[in-house]
Amino acid sequence: MEGRIIDVKGNKLYIEHHNPFEGRPTIVFLHDSLGSVQLWRDFPAKLSEVTGCNVLVYDRLGYGKSYPMFTHERPVNYMELEADLLNDLLIEMNIDNAILFGHSDGGTIALITAAKYSERVKAAICEAGHIFVEDVTLKGVYDAWDAYKTTNLPERLQKYHGDKVEMLFRAWTETWTRDDYRSWNIEHLLKHITCPLLFIQGEADEYGTLDQVEKTVSQVSGYAEKYIIPGIGHTPHKEVPELALKKAAEFIGKFF
C-alpha cells in the first residue's frame, strides 16, 4: 500500500489506503500507544484479503510518519479528541462504512468513535482496549518506563518514530500515571454503541484484566461478543496472528 501525508484540520497525518473493493466496507486500523502503521506489519493486508474489505491504516499525530505532536501534555479526554479527529479523517476520506480495528489505546478510540459517530462506524473490533484505569495497567506503564530507561527500547522505537520517540513516550507514560487520570472512565459512552462489537483479549494481558472485556460487552446496546485467548498477553495480533485473523474475519463475515 502506498502512503501519503494528508491534512486533517491542521493535523498532518500519514495514511495508507487500499481501496480495490468497490461498495465494500473499509477496515480502519488504530494502533496502540507506542504503535504505528509499520508495526501492524502485514496484518491489515491479510485481513483485507480474507474479508474482501478495503483498508485504511494511519499514524496518529506524533507517531510513525505523521507530523510531531504539538505538546506531550495531554488532557484527560485525549482519546475522545482522537475519536473526533478520526471522524474528521473518515469524512476527509469519504468513508461512511468503517469497520474499526483498534489495539490498546486504539481499541479505546474505536469504542469511543463507535459510540459518538454511529453514522460512519458499522462495526468495531476492540483488541485489549481500556474503559477505565486498573492497577495492573499502571504497573505495565511503570514497567515500560523502566525498560525505556534501562534497555535499548528508545533505539528500537526510533526505527518507527524517528526523533518523536521521547515526546510520544512521555505523552503516554505521564498521562496514564497522573493523579487526575486515575478516575478516567468511558463506561458512560458504551450504551451508545449500537454497531456489532468484537472484543479480543489475551487472558494474560499485562495491561488489563478481563473486567475490561466483561464490562464492555455487557453495557453496549448492540450485538457484542468476546474472544479470550488463554496464555496470551497484550498483543494477540502479533502473538497469535492466525487466531486473531481468523476470529476477526469470522466476525466481519457475519455482517458484511
Rank of each mutant, 00 (worst) to 15 (best):
I95P: 06
G222C: 09
L39F: 00
F199K: 05
A248K: 10
A110P: 03
T108D: 08
Y63V: 08
I99R: 02
N19T: 10
A224R: 05
H188W: 09
R24G: 00
K247R: 14
A147T: 01
E119Q: 10
P230A: 08
V8R: 08
E203F: 11
A98R: 08
F132L: 07
I232F: 05
G62Q: 11
V57H: 00
K191E: 15
R178V: 05
V240G: 06
H31T: 07
I193T: 10
M167R: 06
R156Q: 14
I186Q: 04
V213L: 08
K46H: 02
L85P: 01
F101A: 11
M69T: 10
I5N: 11
R178N: 12
S33W: 06
K46T: 03
P44E: 10
A124L: 03
V220P: 01
K65A: 13
I109S: 02
L30S: 07
I232A: 07
P154W: 06
K246D: 14
V121R: 00
S48T: 05
T216S: 05
E242P: 05
L198D: 07
K12F: 06
Y67R: 13
K246V: 10
M69F: 13
G35H: 01
Y207C: 07
V37C: 02
K9A: 13
C53P: 03
L56D: 05
L245W: 07
L168F: 00
I109Y: 00
Q212P: 04
S66W: 04
E80R: 14
I112T: 02
V165P: 00
G107K: 03
E119C: 00
K164V: 02
I193N: 02
F70K: 15
S218C: 05
L61A: 11
I5Y: 06
E22P: 01
F43H: 02
L61R: 12
M167P: 00
E187V: 09
D179K: 07
A249K: 07
I5E: 13
F70Y: 13
E155P: 01
P230L: 09
A144T: 10
D205C: 11
V8K: 06
D59I: 04
G35E: 03
A83E: 05
G10F: 05
L111K: 01
N87Y: 15
Y58C: 07
L89A: 06
A144Y: 07
E155H: 10
N94Y: 13
P25E: 03
W184Y: 09
D32N: 12
E49K: 12
G35D: 02
K159A: 05
E155K: 12
D180N: 13
E80Y: 12
E134A: 07
I5K: 15
E225F: 12
D163T: 11
S104N: 10
I15L: 09
V136K: 06
V141W: 03
P20Y: 08
K226P: 02
K191D: 13
R178E: 12
S221D: 09
D211G: 08
G106E: 08
P68E: 14
V76W: 06
G106L: 06
A124G: 03
V240I: 13
E155N: 12
G129P: 00
K9R: 11
E16S: 10
D179P: 01
M79H: 01
S183G: 07
H130G: 00
C195W: 00
S221M: 06
T177E: 09
D211I: 02
A171M: 09
M69G: 05
D163S: 13
T26A: 08
K46V: 01
D179W: 00
K254G: 05
E119T: 07
Q212S: 05
